[in-house]
Computed example of a mutant assay.
Amino acid sequence: MNVCFLMYPWDSIKQPENDTSLTLIHECVKRGHGVAICSPSNLTIRNSITNVFCTIINRMEKVPSNIKSFYKKASTREEMLPLAGFDVVFMRAEPPLDPLMLNFLDSVKDDVFIINSVRGMREANNKLYTAVFEDPNNEIIPVTHVSKNKDYLVQMIEESPSDKMILKPLNGFGGSGVILIEKSAMGNINSLLDFYINKGEGGSDYVILQEYIEGAEKGDVRILLLNGIPIGAMRRIPSEKDHRSNVSAGGSVAKHKLTTQEKTLCKKIGPKLVKDGLYFVGIDVIGGKLVEVNVMSPGGITYMNKVYKTRVQEKVIDFIESKHLERNAAFIRKSDLKRLVNKA
């Protein structure tokens, strides 16, 4: 099996031991699969065929078991290859999503298994995706408002039964721009809304206001779902100096056993995720409620492995291998049928 990881450049990996993409690559190489790495900016068209300028990991006689050692010892070469020649394209590019990248992937989506699917990424690449899960009573999704209209947003803050709300940009990621606001500081809120709305292209951007969930100050839960089923979870705890629990913002991690409410949440959203081709997803949960769905480059595998002494990446690569076998079996069936029909 040959896998193309569509991600950030190989040379840009700063902390190999904490990098989920590298952990997945390492597992593929260990199993003898061919691996290439391509950044979205290196997609190209040659003679009307989508190609990639990619970094190919050379075969290794002995693959180091330690990921940091693997990254240090792996040798690579550069080549331009047709994207449709790969068996799997694994999306690991950092958000925000580049719509043009999806246009390139459209040309090969019928020939290659893409995780996550092009359609799914188009629909779920921002924080509006949670609205697709019908939840009129806000049982699994916190009360959420999205708008560019400052007067409306101010009104929603004033009408909120809580003194606190979460404010964040629609296109943020990694916890960037997420702040806690309080009604007692309305003067600051007005200026914050001006800043968030007016910093977008053309001077107008969408802002998200979300219900503050009690207990949020203690952190959130990151759950990884594979084919709609949870395969790992961890609690992310904010530092003393930051309310955000993202590890990239200084948070720490701890073991977490899924609650009954979290299991119910996963059962409710899992089928929809699979239907949309969103096979490998990270969700952020607070108090049993879905806060975000991460579909482009969900992380957390390395931290889950450390706190649980497990190997979550094995389940992920098992899954893409099974999908590859399914596609091969379907191709053989069609070829056999075509040969029998033509023979008749």
Score class of each variant (00 low, 15 high):
Glu182Ser: 15
Glu182His: 13
Ser184Thr: 13
Ser184Pro: 00
Ser184Tyr: 10
Met186Glu: 06
Met186Gly: 08
Met186His: 04
Met186Cys: 09
Met186Val: 07
Asn188Val: 12
Asn188Ser: 12
Ile189Gln: 04
Leu193Cys: 03
Leu193Ala: 04
Tyr196His: 03
Ile197Ala: 06
Asn198Asp: 07
Asn198Trp: 07
Lys199Glu: 15
Gly203Asn: 08
Asp205Glu: 14
Ile208Glu: 02
Gln210Val: 09
Glu211Phe: 03
Glu211Arg: 01
Tyr212Ile: 05
Glu214Tyr: 13
Gly215Cys: 07
Gly215Thr: 05
Glu217Arg: 09
Lys218Ala: 15
Gly219Glu: 06
Asp220Val: 03
Arg222Gly: 11
Ile223Glu: 06
Ile223Tyr: 06
Leu224Phe: 02
Leu224Asp: 00
Leu225Asn: 03
Leu226Met: 12
Asn227Lys: 06
Ile229Gln: 13
Ile229Val: 14
Pro230Trp: 10
Pro230Gln: 14
Ile231Arg: 04
Ala233Val: 05
Ala233Tyr: 00
Met234Val: 09
Met234Pro: 02
Arg235Met: 12
Arg236Met: 10
Pro238Gly: 02
Pro238Glu: 05
Pro238Arg: 03
Lys241His: 13
Asp242Thr: 01
Asp242Asn: 13
Asp242Trp: 01
His243Glu: 10
Ser245Gly: 08
Asn246Met: 07
Asn246Glu: 05
Ala249Lys: 14
Ala249Phe: 00
Ala249His: 03
Gly250Lys: 02
Gly251Tyr: 01
Ala254Pro: 00
Lys255Gln: 14
Lys255Ala: 12
Lys257Ala: 15
Lys257Asn: 13
Leu258His: 11
Thr259Gln: 05
Gln261Pro: 01
Thr264Leu: 14
Cys266Pro: 00
Cys266Leu: 06
Lys268Ala: 10
Lys272Thr: 15
Leu273Val: 08
Leu273Ala: 08
Leu273Gln: 09
Val274Gln: 07
Val274Pro: 00
Lys275Asn: 07
Lys275Cys: 04
Gly277Gln: 09
Tyr279Phe: 15
Val281Lys: 05
Gly282Glu: 07
Gly282Met: 11
Ile283Val: 15
Asp284Phe: 07
Ile286Gln: 01
Ile286Ser: 03
Ile286Thr: 06
Ile286Phe: 05
Ile286Arg: 04
Gly287Asn: 08
Val291Ala: 04
Val293Asp: 01
Val293Cys: 07
Val295Cys: 10
Val295Phe: 02
Val295Leu: 06
Met296Phe: 09
Met296Pro: 01
Ser297Cys: 08
Gly299Lys: 04
Thr302Val: 11
Tyr303Glu: 14
Lys306His: 08
Lys306Glu: 10
Tyr308Met: 10
Arg311Leu: 14
Val312Tyr: 03
Gln313Asn: 08
Gln313Arg: 02
Gln313Thr: 06
Lys315Cys: 02
Lys315Glu: 12
Val316Ile: 15
Asp318Pro: 01
Asp318Phe: 04
Asp318Glu: 08
Glu321Leu: 11
